[in-house]
Design a protein around this nucleic acid. Sequence first.
DNA 1: CGACCCCTTGACATGCATCAAAGGGAGTGG
DNA 2: CCACTCCCTTTGATGCATGTCAAGGGGTCG
Lengths: 241, 241
Amino acid sequence: MPMTLRLSRNETDAAEIPAACDAAAAQTINGRLRALRDFSSRERFARNETLFNEGQRADRIFKIISGTVRLCRHTPDGRRHIADFMLPGDIVGFAEFDTHPFTAEAVTDLTLSAYPRARFEQWDSAGPELRAGLLSHLASTMLATQQQLFVLGCRNAKERFASFLLRMADRTDTPQGERLDLPMGRQDIADHLGLTIETVCRVITSLRGAGLITAPNTHQLILNDVAGLRALAEGIATLAA
Amino acid sequence: MPMTLRLSRNETDAAEIPAACDAAAAQTINGRLRALRDFSSRERFARNETLFNEGQRADRIFKIISGTVRLCRHTPDGRRHIADFMLPGDIVGFAEFDTHPFTAEAVTDLTLSAYPRARFEQWDSAGPELRAGLLSHLASTMLATQQQLFVLGCRNAKERFASFLLRMADRTDTPQGERLDLPMGRQDIADHLGLTIETVCRVITSLRGAGLITAPNTHQLILNDVAGLRALAEGIATLAA
DNA sequence: CGACCCCTTGACATGCATCAAAGGGAGTGG
DNA sequence: CCACTCCCTTTGATGCATGTCAAGGGGTCG
């Protein structure tokens, strides 16, 4: 979420509608990217490959087509923090200064489109819609980052994990009872939530014991009780078990 | 830092130079605010007064003239998280959507200028400079938020406090050996760093014991060894004591 | 079938929170 | 000017959530 834009489902969908490819559409972010199609390149990365490293020059904008990316930073002594995961439709690398503030790695096999940033930022042709779209996206990215800050600042392990699940379900439009895909491993989740892998495992066990979730397999969870999870995430409820 | 803009020292200073009040200056953020002078109001708040509450309509932009503001959120069960402190020169309320995502309270007695947001956002007259200025400020705000996320995600109490001190010293241009003003109380620092007030006190005691800092009084600290503090903050060094 | 990798669980350690109480410092009233 | 009071800070004693260390367990790929 930091330094990146996340497109709302609506806009992403709209971007796929050919009819939207007119002059007005070029004034949205996705419209602008579409206008740069001829300058873009489709690329693939294998699991755990690096898209770019922290400090590297940020001259391209990436739009995730399929797969998941993690944005992470490292401490000199080897600890890792995952600022956020980027899902299909998300855009990486737009809001940075000239260098990337984090490393981007493929969590799964990955397909993306890369656009030259310099062209994207030729503002001369940018209309008020694009400007509004950019500010609005920056604001929502900001909001998400601030939310995560709140989570790390105030909440315990179960609350953090519940927040994470709810956000993932929300981002992927997964309703209660459906299988929620978690493409990242436990260690990634732990590094995102400021916990250890063992604690994440224990929390999952505990939530499963409470009936809030079901775990068909390692990378899929079913949220049985979204309201309960929300109560847990908000700190309204505590888990007896 | 979240949802807010922080002006670099340079720009703040430039804003005070009358000669800068020409057409070009109206294309910077501070220039734009100055152009709205006639619509602005100077206001004062006493210590602990509330500027606005979370969820309240965000129709004004505030520029801190003197004093300190805390931006905070509360959990339903009473825990509090301070996203950031706003210092003189900082701007609050710019990057939000239509409602404030947090509560703003006066840490100390406070003077500020309030500007109508609607007028600020009449983009018709905005040139490329203002646009660049806005994006650049959003990006740096974002960077700071992400940095704080990293701190809360990866670091222990001493490291967090050292990071906090270094950032405060940096924001206030306080060099090593000079008194660093900490207008906020220990509880505020604790809520900002995701710690308890007792832990903050113990950390201070510990850093003082190590000679890294001196504490002339509660609201002033002297950083005796910025390099040492930086090593601590980065996780390179540990404190023996 | 075996090896590897990741996940899970258990036992133990510890950093920080919690609970409790004493120690300033600033403002107020005598 | 001093004493009182209130609020905040500091320190101490103890407990708990989470980290650390260690040992299986299960799925996947060759």
